[in-house]
Design a protein around this nucleic acid. Structure first.
Lengths: 187, 187
DNA sequence: AGAACAATTTGATTATTGTCAAAAAAGATC
DNA sequence: GATCTTTTTTGACAATAATCAAATTGTTCT
């Protein structure tokens, strides 16, 4: 619970009342491995935070699963387009380990944004953070080789290799699993 | 001016007062071709809107210019990381045609966000739009061939080919100019 | 128009990654 | 522990795009 509060605070400051209201708006779940947090063609009702475990965000393209994101411990994650536009999307979110997940409902968050100006600002800053991350990732995909991207991933998330199947990591990096296997075999 | 107001309104609704205040906070400039809107290692003070003309957002990587974005008529654009974090960045913004540009200063916008809750909400929605666009672009880069990306660009911005040098388009698409020239030669 | 410069195209070659197929290794089940 | 299943690795080959170099075309300026 401590780390979660710190993560919330690190995004932006809130008045004691707003902070309290926001913190209490989150639900908590303990879910098993392979549990669906968002199903295919469903509307994403929640913005999630993963306290412990791993969630995989993926979709099907030409019959193949494409992993778009892997959320490890203490990260926020959500199905961006479905959540904001409240329409069904082909993005699926599923745990790949038994996980402890927190979530805030879209309508709850929007109501809080309406009611408290500083929560609106906090959320604006949270989205800004996502946008910046998205920019960095785009540059990485466009201008780095598969090998460089893999090495960067190893540096940033050393535990990912032990915990996530190779095929998921490969499609997250935008390469085939054969290519990743070959990168890996040369140390 | 009409189109600009409509673009503002399309992002999110505002009270008459807030709308008025926001609209009046923008400055207008007529700038020649090759004019710098943000120089290298400078802080991006403005969020821009291009009324007429084209702006190119680019940076240097290993001595080569990489075009990250091309903003055509009636688009918002800015140096995301520098603007939000108010720190120098290697992103350069430069017009490539004589252009009419509008801009709002970071401090002005932040002050308005502080003062008016609905402007804060408007801005939150604007950023959300950027984030969604960024997601789409990432998928495009990761999972489409250079040819597909070029054809999509032609469909969405048919005038871009007449107005933007090939080398800029190529690096925007994440390919070399030779590759683009070859794609182009086969219709 | 002609010179000087910039932008684009073409050619030959190399590097990277994808595709398809099969083998090997690791994990799960009874 | 032997069998079945899934995951990962390896191999051969094809496709895509990058690199380097040169030729061609287009633009600008006097």
């Amino acid at each position: 619970m401590e780390i979660f509060n710190k993560r919330i605070d690190s995004i932006g400051s809130l008045s004691p009342e707003s902070r309290n209201v926001l913190l209490n708006a989150w639900e908590s779940w303990s879910v098993p491995k392979d549990h669906f947090l968002v199903r295919e063609n469903a509307i994403a009702h929640h913005l999630f935070y993963i306290k412990k475990g791993i969630a995989r965000i993926y979709y099907f393209k030409n019959g193949k699963e494409i992993t778009e994101w892997l959320a490890l411990d203490n990260e926020f994650f959500f199905s961006i387009i479905s959540f904001f536009e409240q329409k069904p999307s082909n993005l699926i979110i599923q745990t790949i380990e038994a996980s402890e997940v927190m979530g805030i409902h879209h309508d709850t968050l929007m109501a809080l944004c309406d009611q408290y100006h500083d929560i609106e600002r906090w959320f604006r800053k949270a989205i800004t953070g996502s946008l910046i991350l998205s920019q960095y990732r785009m540059d990485s995909i466009q201008f780095e080789t598969a090998q460089q991207r893999y090495e960067k991933l190893l540096t940033n998330y050393p535990s990912i290799v032990q915990r996530v199947p190779l095929s998921y990591i490969a499609s997250f990096l935008g390469i085939t699993q054969e290519t990743l296997s070959r990168i890996r075999s040369q140390h």
